[in-house]
């Protein structure tokens, strides 16, 4: 009986085929990482993957369905080109750019920065082509630490820059003193570049791999995008001025813009 089970197991792991020119001679007990897992630790896609996908389909649809029963899509008054809404906001995924527009020339905020970010995304796999650690979250413990520290940095520095520029408006202070090219394009561009690169410049002292440099840059970019989006979406009220989301004047509800 035991032998039969053992044979069945052998057959499952290494199916015999008449065309094979080699043969399994014996199974031995040992500490190979593949013990009891079969040759490649795989399962048949049917039904496991099919079931997972059906469950995800049902779960996602149910979530959207229930939320749709609870909350209606917004519909304001009919479009009127002569009456501007106050505030007038872009859709939430572009409101981060709108927030940037408050702080620098539209050429930098609306064109240069988005282009550079998309270009950065495009070149990531060509800058970092070392396959080590592919498929592993943050590649290593060091990578995890770099990500965490970069995220903390951006969470602190980005809101600080927003509030600072909102209080001491750089563009207004330099109006008439320096030409527009300097006060609106070069200076804010330098500040935002330095703010985004500072963690990377510090990291360079520790001889990072290319993956670690990109982890740092991507994290600063991603977290800054979140901060700017939240600031534009939740903290900007009438006149696109900064308010606390729960203390908006005129009963403006930032969530109504979804």
């Amino acid at each position: 009986m035991a032998a039969e089970i053992k044979d069945q197991k052998t057959e499952n792991i290494f199916p015999s085929a008449p065309t094979k020119t080699y043969q399994l001679m014996e199974l031995v007990r040992g500490t190979s990482p593949m013990a009891n897992k079969g040759p490649d630790n795989t399962v048949f896609s049917f039904p496991v993957v099919a079931l997972i996908e059906v469950l995800l389909l049902l779960g996602t649809t149910l979530l959207v369905f229930v939320f749709s029963l609870l909350r209606n899509a917004p519909l304001e008054d009919i479009a009127n080109p002569t009456v501007t809404t106050n505030p007038a906001k872009a859709p939430w995924y572009f409101v981060g750019l709108q927030e940037l527009l408050e702080h620098m020339h539209p050429l930098v905020a609306g064109v240069l920065i988005p282009s550079v970010l998309v270009l950065f995304l495009v070149v990531i796999p060509y800058l970092d082509n070392d396959r080590t650690g592919a498929g592993r979250w943050f590649t290593s413990q060091r990578g995890r630490r770099i990500t965490l520290l970069s995220a903390i940095y951006a969470v602190i520095v980005m809101p600080l820059l927003i509030v600072l520029d909102n209080t001491f408006n750089l563009r207004e202070m330099l109006r008439g003193v320096a030409p527009e090219l300097i006060s609106q394009i070069i200076l804010p561009g330098l500040i935002i570049t330095l703010a985004a690169w500072l963690p990377m410049l510090i990291l360079l002292r520790w001889k990072p791999t290319m993956r670690e440099v990109i982890l740092c840059l991507f994290t600063v970019m991603f977290v800054s995008a979140i901060v700017l989006t939240l600031s534009g979406f939740l903290f900007r009220g009438p006149g696109f001025k900064l308010y606390l989301p729960w203390a908006m004047p005129g009963g403006y509800n930032p969530l109504s813009g979804l």
């Binding site: 917004p74 008054d77 906001k89 872009a90 609306g110």
Partner: peptide, 18 residues
């Protein structure tokens, strides 16, 4: 509606600065 009209106006204005 007003929401969509002004969101698209603001959004497409950004593109015009290129």
């Amino acid at each position: 509606d007003q929401l969509s009209y002004w969101a698209i106006t603001v959004g497409t204005n950004i593109a015009s600065y290129a």
